[in-house]
Design a protein around this nucleic acid. Structure first.
Lengths: 243, 243
DNA sequence: TAATAATTTTGACATTTATCAATGATAGAA
DNA sequence: TTCTATCATTGATAAATGTCAAAATTATTA
């Protein structure tokens, strides 16, 4: 009993078993929710819980790997590296998010790159373990499928935005995404550079800056370096819809 | 035995049971391949095999339905109806293709519209039946998941094309898609109008026409009304990659 | 077949967005 | 702190793409 501290999880301070059973299963949106304790233990039996520094690559596009990722902590960007070094940031992922690199059950080739934009702690789970659980726990398969369906719909709506909206609409959308889905606050210190904000909105950094400038002039937002505050969400929503 | 003709399938001429067991299970790329005869019977027990005329809507975006679709025959376009009546054709589907409208395991709201561009015969299968099979046949779940993963990757690469390529590259890609994936021939009579070709390539019909004109001048293609012939696939591939 | 409607093509022009170059601001490293 | 490298901003200009209107072609119907 004097060695209790050794058994504590470095991340959450609780006993290390919590990483598998407590932390995972408690997360509301987590796809692992339907799993029993036993099944969860099986899944993360030899799990690799890894830490990444800012700017480190977690998954690299066009490489082969059989891992899927469950984010424990931190923020990462999911993006494709297109021709001519032009990146397109598809989304950001944070605590509790599950993602496969596009190779799941399909050749294991990763279709996008994931890299840390804050220090990241995540679990790499071998995808073969997922398959085994399908038989035991049919609800888990449904949950995983739902995850895929959501991602599908997200990509579809992103595609429509990027192709059918003008730049102000796309920037408004990016700002609202950061507020609602990532920072959950009207005022936030963005971990993304202007270049990266541009890559989320499919435009050059110069265009992005000009549009932020317009928004500032219209008193829709306020910026101070990497800190952004949304002053008039109504207008921003309107621009995002009709831009 | 004198009533044999009554039992014949109107579509393929074989005994009607073939629609479920023979035709489906023989298809190479079909997700139903891993199913046993018994499981297949369960799935299509009360199946609705429906015929649609050209231009009829099979699934309508933003409506609720629990059906997934398996194409028996014909060609349909899958598209989203964006703001201001601007459509984006995501892909075409034909014989043997399986598709869910984006609501599978996720609220049953359809995220795109599917409509017939030739006469279509397809089966509408209730999605709840899919779930039941997961337990019995784990390989089926994997197959369905693979289908989703593929769709995901397709959407991702389409998104990159539409956002990062210039118009000639996008048109080249559309033409190669029709040749390789749909008509499987360098010369084909397209069922898509210029407007629809434009909606696949994310541009106006006027721009599309101008680019087809350029391709004709460079002797890369030949057109005669709705008939298109690819003369120089090498060039087209090159343009599609670097455009 | 003739007449009508719908689609395709072309041209002139406007708008959106990117590119390039220069300047200003900011954050780490010495 | 000062230097240096990176990042953000601005302006001038060019390129890509869309809009609108008219003409040509093709399809449909009477």
């Amino acid at each position: 009993m004097t060695e209790t501290s050794n058994k504590n999880c470095k991340d959450c301070g609780k006993e290390s078993v919590c990483c598998a059973q407590t932390c995972f299963s408690k997360s509301e949106t987590n796809i692992f929710k339907p799993l029993s304790e036993q099944e969860l233990s099986f899944l993360v039996d030899k799990k690799q819980q890894i830490k990444y520094k800012v700017k480190e690559t977690i998954i690299k596009q066009n490489t082969t790997s059989t891992f899927v990722i469950c984010m424990r902590d931190g923020l990462a960007k999911v993006y494709t590296e297109g021709e001519k070094g032009k990146n397109l940031i598809v989304k950001l992922i944070g605590k509790g998010d599950f993602i496969s690199g596009g190779g799941l059950f399909n050749g294991n080739i990763q279709h996008f790159t994931i890299s840390a934009i804050t220090p990241v702690t995540c679990c790499l789970i071998d995808s073969s373990k997922l398959t085994n659980l399908f038989t035991e726990n049919n609800q888990f398969a449904v949950e995983l499928m739902r995850n895929h369906t959501k991602q599908n719909n997200y990509l579809l709506s992103k595609m429509v935005s990027l192709t059918q909206k003008y730049m102000p609409g796309r920037v408004a959308e990016t700002l609202l995404y950061l507020k609602n889905d990532i920072y959950k606050n009207s005022k936030f210190k963005s971990h993304l550079s202007r270049q990266e904000l541009a890559e989320m909105s499919n435009m050059t950094k110069e265009s992005l800056v000009r549009i932020l400038h317009q928004f500032k002039e219209s008193e829709i937002i306020k910026t101070q370096g990497s800190e952004i505050e949304i002053l008039d969400e109504g207008s921003l929503t309107h621009i995002s819809r009709n831009g």
